[in-house]
């Protein structure tokens, strides 16, 4: 390629435990709740593998974004963020979990990813369950944990596991998307290539959880 500077960092970048999701940076100012506007937290990726894997673009600028899941221009944001209060979230969680058990018996064994994996046992956190999103392969539903006003983890509650193909998609696709949603900043990447059909449902469920949480 002559037209572009290219590089492949062929080392695998392990990201899952490195949480540097900053909600206020992936939600546009127009829809950003004031409560999380100041929620900065630890800096992204400074001690993580992203730094070790080479940042030859010289970009220590702060403008790096994960992939834009929460999008203020999406059709749901305005209404849900106005109507959902923090107090209603736990009720939402319970009702959604009940719904998930009704509609989908196969809850995944997947654990938390992100910092919520270690923080999940402590108090002071809130879990918010996203809507079950129907996909071609079956429903997908995620749950997020909110700690100190920040999203601290994602767990896939329901994923298609009904046949061999679905297992393949589930095993290969959803965890990658966990990383994408939570840890894209750690790898200092702007976008991810390689995607899945199930990602559609994953993103919809995650978006709805984010909407409910007001993040």
């Amino acid at each position: 390629m002559r037209r572009a500077i290219l590089a492949v960092l062929a080392t695998a970048v392990g990201l899952v435990l490195l949480l540097s999701f900053k909600p206020h940076e992936v939600i546009s100012p127009a829809a950003r709740p004031a409560a999380v506007a100041e929620g900065t937290g630890p800096g992204p990726g400074d001690s993580g593998p992203g730094a070790d894997d080479g940042d030859g673009d010289g970009g220590e600028d702060g403008g790096r974004f994960g992939r834009g899941f929460p999008d203020s221009s999406g059709p749901r944001d305005a209404q849900t963020q106005e109507t959902q209060s923090q107090e209603t979230q736990s009720q939402e969680t319970q009702s959604q979990e009940t719904q998930s058990q009704e509609t989908q018996s196969q809850e995944t064994q997947g654990g938390w990813s992100g910092a919520g994996a270690t923080a999940g046992a402590t108090s002071g956190e809130k879990t918010v369950t996203g809507d079950a999103a129907d996909t071609r392969w079956g429903p997908v539903q995620v749950e997020i944990v909110i700690s100190a006003g920040r999203m601290a983890g994602i767990r896939v509650l329901v994923a298609p596991q009904n046949n061999h193909r679905d297992i393949e998609i589930n095993n290969e696709a959803l965890p990658i998307l966990d990383e994408e949603a939570l840890s894209a900043r750690s790898a200092q990447i702007d976008v991810v290539s390689g995607a899945t059909y199930t990602s559609d449902g994953y993103i919809r469920s995650l978006q709805s959880a984010l909407d409910k949480a007001g993040l």
């Binding site: 390629m1 037209r3 572009a4 500077i5 290219l6 590089a7 492949v8 960092l9 062929a10 695998a12 970048v13 392990g14 990201l15 899952v16 894997d53 030859g56 673009d57 010289g58 970009g59 600028d61 403008g63 990813s113 095993n171 290969e172 959803l174 965890p175 990658i176 966990d178 990383e179 994408e180 894209a184 790898a187 200092q188 990447i189 702007d190 976008v191 991810v192 290539s193 390689g194 995607a195």
Partner: peptide, 26 residues
């Protein structure tokens, strides 16, 4: 002064990237 960075999802190892491709107009 910065290039786009595209993570390539690892097809076999959940939660990892196989590579990062960087460039502009790509």
């Amino acid at each position: 002064g910065r290039s786009w960075r595209v993570g390539v999802a690892h097809p076999l190892r959940p939660g990892e990237l196989a590579a990062v491709v960087s460039g502009t107009d790509l």
